[in-house]
């Protein structure tokens, strides 16, 4: 053992023999308003001005209410009305607040008081009295004496919360496999968002982008947004020679028309910033960038999976239809996505 090691003992680093001295209260500083009547007069005037500003604020609020009447259908009129009333009322309240605080700080008594901390424990006498009351209540109710009542009451209290636990367990819908399916079915026509007009393959010229919803979605009454949030698709036509298609998915497109899920695989923002020449699809939320010409693989940003592709075909009338649902879940990944 070296000398240095010997000179230190393990354990507390604080030396309880020499505690830090109580610094006490700072010396009292007498305010200028206490020293000179002139300063007190000035402070008095300042406070009066602040209260006066408050009155002006209230008048501005009243003026704003009448000068900018709310006109039905004119949102700008509502804005002016709210703006001037709000500014006036804020000025009015701040005027009172600043005046009151300034008054207390400059002119009200400036005594500094220190209060000692007392023990939290009650006196022995009070404690004995409390114990007496408990014993009396026990004796009169027979809580200790009548075992049957006591135990049956414990039982009732233990069973009472169980229905609540069962109700809580049943809150909310069971997700089931809804994360893995969308509205797309074999033969569902691709239609324009928001009108629901079906799209012909010949309508989609090179460089075009269509924002697509499945047929029937625009007429839905219930759960429309839930379905749209899963089924939204971006339809793009690129020069077929620019497309680097996976041979296994070559029949998922039609003459350079490809359809990809519009829901980002990072956290589900709509990815729709399509660049015609680079074929990059940019997500505006976190800058994930997908290469549409290359199976929508991620070329930049936090997304971890390519956008799922919707296999499309053309029906007898020339309209674009889905061959099937997406073959993998759309949107953000979740823990049992591969199951």
């Amino acid at each position: 053992m070296s000398d240095i090691e010997k000179s230190y003992s393990p354990g507390l680093a604080t030396d309880i023999e020499k505690p830090i001295a109580n610094p006490g209260i700072e010396p009292h500083r007498i305010r200028m308003t206490d020293k000179s009547e002139k300063h007190a007069r000035t402070a008095e005037k300042q406070i009066a001005v602040m209260f006066g500003v408050s009155v002006v604020g209230a008048i501005i609020a009243i003026w704003g209410f009448f000068a900018f009447p709310i006109v039905d259908g004119d949102l700008a009129a509502t804005r002016n009305n709210s703006l001037w009333m709000g500014l006036g009322m804020a000025l009015s309240m701040f005027g009172i607040g600043f005046g009151a605080v300034h008054w207390a700080k400059t002119l009200m008594p400036d005594n500094e008081v220190s209060e000692m901390r007392h023990q939290a424990r009650s006196s022995d006498e009070t404690r004995a009295q409390a114990l007496e009351i408990v014993k009396l209540a026990d004796g009169e109710s027979g809580f200790s004496r009548r075992k049957l009542i006591r135990r049956s009451m414990y039982g009732a209290l233990a069973f009472f919360p169980i229905p609540a636990i069962i109700i809580f367990g049943d809150l909310g819908p069971v997700v089931g496999d809804t994360l893995k399916h969308t509205m797309w079915k074999p033969g569902t026509r691709l239609t324009k968002d928001p009108t629901g007009i079906p799209i012909k393959a010949s309508d989609v010229t090179i460089g075009s982008v269509f924002h697509v919803i499945p047929e029937g979605l625009s007429e839905m009454e219930e759960h429309k947004l839930e379905e749209k949030a899963k089924a939204a698709v971006l339809l793009v036509r690129v020069n077929p020679s620019d497309l680097n298609e996976d041979p296994a998915k070559a029949d998922w497109s039609y003459q350079g028309i490809v359809a990809y899920s519009k829901i980002c695989t990072h956290v589900g923002c709509p990815v729709a910033l399509y660049e015609q020449h680079t074929h990059h699809l940019l997500c505006p939320c976190h800058q994930s960038t997908f290469d549409l010409a290359n199976h929508c693989e991620v070329v930049f940003g936090p997304a971890s999976r390519p956008l799922p592709q919707l296999p499309i075909a053309v029906d007898a009338e020339g309209y674009l239809i889905a061959q099937s649902d997406f073959l993998e879940p759309v949107g953000p990944s979740f823990w049992d996505i591969r199951k």
Binding site: K200, D203, V204, T205, I206, S208, V209, Y274, Q276, H277
Partner: peptide, 13 residues
């Protein structure tokens, strides 16, 4: 016409 990287929005769209 879809200039530069802007996509085309033809009259069918």
């Amino acid at each position: 016409t879809g200039p530069q990287n802007m996509p085309v929005f033809n009259d069918a769209n």
